[in-house]
Structures are given as C-alpha cells and as structure tokens.
Write a protein that binds this DNA or RNA. Structure first.
Lengths: 135, 135
DNA sequence: CGATAATCTACTAAAACTATAGGATAAAAG
DNA sequence: CTTTTATCCTATAGTTTTAGTAGATTATCG
C-alpha cells in the first residue's frame, strides 16, 4: 500500500509543477485544492524541503515552490524520500540493504528471487518517469 | 514492504514444493527448517488451506501438502491471498477497486497515472512466475 | 510595530502487524 | 477405548506505523 504521506506528497509536487512560475504557493491553498489535511501536508512539505525538492519563503507572500524543473525530478528519488525503499524486502534493496534474520542463504531463497524481479520492474517505472511526466 | 505473513507463506509453499511426493509435512518441521514461529506459521498455513492451495491431514503422520502442482500455482493468486491487492492504491486495483475519497477525477490524477504503471509492471512479474519458478 | 505565514517539537489516537496462549477437534496407533 | 499426535480455532497482547493535532516560535512584509 502506498502511504497517504507519499500520495499527498506527489499531489503537492504535481500541484506546484502545474503552477507556472516560481511564485511561492501557500500550504493552505494546496491543502484546499487537493483535499488534504493542512497540518499533515505541512509536515510532508517540510520533509520535501529538507530533501532538496522544495524551497520555502516565510512571512507574508510566503509559501513553497519547486527548486528544480519538473523534468529534472525523477520518481525514484521522490519515492525513496516519501515512501522509503522501493524494494519490498530489505535483502533486495539497493539503497537500504539489510540481511534477513531468517533465511541462511539469499542465493537459494525463493522470496529473494521473486522480489528481485519485482524491485527491478518497479525501478523501471520510476526511472522512466519524472514529475513532468505526471502532469 | 512485504509482510512477514507473505514472506513466511511463500517460504512454506516453496518448502512443500521441494518435498517430492504428496506426503503431509508437519508444521513443526517447516517452522524449524525455515526459522518461523510455529504458531504464526500455523495461522498462515490455515489461510492457505482455506484458499485452496493446501490440503491437510490430522493425527499422527498428518500435516500439510500441496493440492496442485507447483507450476499450476501462479504468484498472482498467492500474492493476492497473502498480501492483498497488488495495486498500491485501491483506485487502480483490478480485483479490489475502490474510489479515492480525495481526488475528484481519476483521469487527471497524477498519482493514478503513475500507479497504473507500477501495478502493470508488478502484474507482469507475478503472472510470469509460478511456484515452480521459485525453486 | 502588527499581521501574516512558515517552522518546529511533541504528542496522541487509531490501525495494522506480528506473534502467542490455550484449548477444541480429529485421526491414528496400541 | 485410551493415548498420542497434530491440526483447527478464537482471543488477545505487544509493538510498530500511520495519520493527524496542538501549540509555541520565528521570519517577512508593509
């Protein structure tokens, strides 16, 4: 399941990408237009800013804005920041690898075998989509 | 993330598939060999039986066994029973479709667009793998 | 200054997941 | 028929994750 955090984050990024120009957009506006709890969205935008996707401006006329062009934002990085590892098990994760507690041998593990394929197919999709492709 | 339930279920199915012949295998044996809590595994095997993957025999010499041949068990059905919908959002699910609460229009929803692709790529993988392919 | 709006920390309610406990039921062996 | 073996079933406890809230703080503009 995709978490609401990711879902809302993607919607917010899309919203900002659709707004032409780099004018800051207020949280309240995004929340209202996309039917998202404002406070929840607040924390999501904060993590997007901390991870280099958004810039913010405080005070009157402030808000959030995209730092890069939409076509420069690949879905792989967005998903990793919002949703975490793309792999469904840590033992097949490229960026968050961890050995399984059970499972003495990855080479012969049936789950491992299957999940490698699932990871690769998901990566294909995320790599071939940037934010611009979602508009 | 893949739930432990699914992971253990897959391991148990694989274990049973590797055992030649249709002799019942005891829960305790599978649990020990695969490092799974026996009681937890018990409930997983029960749902696999209820969904037509396994047969069981009680009493001495009893246990669980595969009802079908491994190559007749596609991963799509296994995953749907153990893990639930393959889609990451209900609004792109084939078997568990549900409209999103937010999101007035699926046709223009950026998340929808992306998740359709992810679903299709995952389906490709699960459809092209049967239990026999994991051995 | 005063109004506006983002920032940050901490907290909580609810749901899902993982696992365990304890006994009921059924089959086979002696 | 009794004992042993092993599945069947219900309930529940502990933990983690998710989703959302509260409230004080800080920066900016006019």
């Amino acid at each position: 399941m995709l978490s609401k955090k990711t879902k809302y984050g993607l919607k917010a990024l899309t919203y900002l990408a659709r707004v032409k120009g780099k004018e800051p957009v207020q949280i309240a506006e995004i929340a209202k237009q996309e039917n998202i709890s404002q406070k929840f969205l607040e924390s999501i935008l904060l993590t997007l800013r901390r991870n280099g996707f958004l810039g913010s401006k405080k005070g009157k006329g402030g808000g959030y804005y995209l730092i890069k062009e939409p076509h420069e934002i690949p879905m792989t990085t967005v998903m990793r920041v919002l949703e975490g590892p793309i792999a469904m098990v840590p033992c097949v994760s490229l960026n968050f690898y961890e050995k399984c507690g059970d499972c003495p041998d990855e080479a012969t593990c049936s789950v491992h075998k299957l999940m490698i394929q699932v990871r690769d197919s998901a990566l294909d999709v995320y790599r071939s989509n940037t934010l611009a492709d979602l508009l």
